[in-house]
Simulated scan of single mutants.
Amino acid sequence: MNAPSSAMPPNGPESNAVIRQIDWQQTIAVRHRVLWPDRPPEFSHIDNDNAGLHFGAFIGPLLVCVASVFINDESARLRKYATLPEYQGQGIGTTVLKSIFAHLKQQAVDYFWCDARESAIGFYRRFGMRVEGERFYKSGEPYMRMSVKL
C-alpha cells in the first residue's frame, strides 16, 4: 500500500520524512507509546481498524508518526493520530495531515473531523478546523470535536 509522498520543505526533519500508507498493525506501537502508555497495547486498537486508511511518516526506517482515517461517503474521521515525543514540534505531524488532506480531496471527501484532545486544539486550528459542541471525556481525557470543509 503506497500513497503518494507529500511535498515537503527543503530544510528540517520534515524534509526527510516519507509519508505512505501502512497496515493498521504497524500503527499500534506508536499509538500505544504516545496516546495510552499506561494502558495495555490492545487499548490502542480500534474495532474497525481493518476498514481504515493508515498513514505513517518514516525517518529512514523508523516510523515516527501515525494517523488513521475512516471514510464514510464524503466525510472522513481522523483517529489515533500520534507522533513520537522526540519528533514532535518538527513539522512531521503537519506534513502527515497535509498529505491526508490531499489524499482525501482526490477521493472526493469534502468534510474532515476528529475528536481532538483538548491539548491539541491549537494544532488543529492551524488547518482551519473549528470546535463543534461541548467538551467531553474519553478515559478521563478532555476532548472537543473539531471539523473542517476540505
Score class of each variant (00 low, 15 high):
residue 144 M to W: 15
residue 94 T to C: 02
residue 67 A to P: 02
residue 90 Q to H: 14
residue 42 E to C: 04
residue 7 A to N: 10
residue 43 F to M: 01
residue 148 V to T: 15
residue 13 P to E: 10
residue 28 I to D: 01
residue 137 Y to H: 00
residue 105 K to C: 08
residue 24 W to S: 07
residue 40 P to E: 09
residue 150 L to C: 08
residue 137 Y to F: 06
residue 145 R to V: 04
residue 117 R to G: 02
residue 72 N to K: 13
residue 116 A to D: 04
residue 24 W to Q: 01
residue 131 V to K: 15
residue 75 S to V: 09
residue 22 I to G: 00
residue 11 N to H: 14
residue 42 E to M: 03
residue 149 K to L: 14
residue 37 P to K: 11
residue 127 F to I: 06
residue 17 A to S: 12
residue 132 E to W: 03
residue 4 P to I: 08
residue 93 G to W: 01
residue 15 S to E: 08
residue 104 L to P: 04
residue 105 K to Q: 11
residue 94 T to D: 11
residue 119 S to T: 10
residue 56 G to A: 05
residue 48 N to Y: 10
residue 117 R to C: 05
residue 84 L to M: 08
residue 136 F to G: 00
residue 68 S to P: 08
residue 112 F to S: 13
residue 139 S to V: 12
residue 9 P to E: 09
residue 37 P to S: 13
residue 34 V to W: 11
residue 70 F to L: 13
residue 40 P to N: 12
residue 95 T to A: 15
residue 150 L to Y: 01
residue 7 A to S: 13
residue 141 E to H: 06
residue 23 D to M: 07
residue 72 N to M: 05
residue 100 I to L: 02
residue 55 F to V: 03
residue 4 P to G: 12
residue 83 T to K: 09
residue 3 A to D: 05
residue 68 S to H: 10
residue 27 T to K: 00
residue 118 E to T: 05
residue 146 M to Y: 06
residue 117 R to N: 03
residue 65 C to W: 03
residue 123 F to H: 04
residue 37 P to H: 14
residue 48 N to D: 14
residue 29 A to Y: 00
residue 74 E to P: 00
residue 94 T to G: 12
residue 74 E to V: 09
residue 52 G to I: 02
residue 23 D to S: 14
residue 79 R to Q: 15
residue 15 S to Q: 07
residue 42 E to A: 13
residue 56 G to T: 05
residue 85 P to H: 11
residue 74 E to Y: 03
residue 9 P to A: 11
residue 124 Y to C: 14
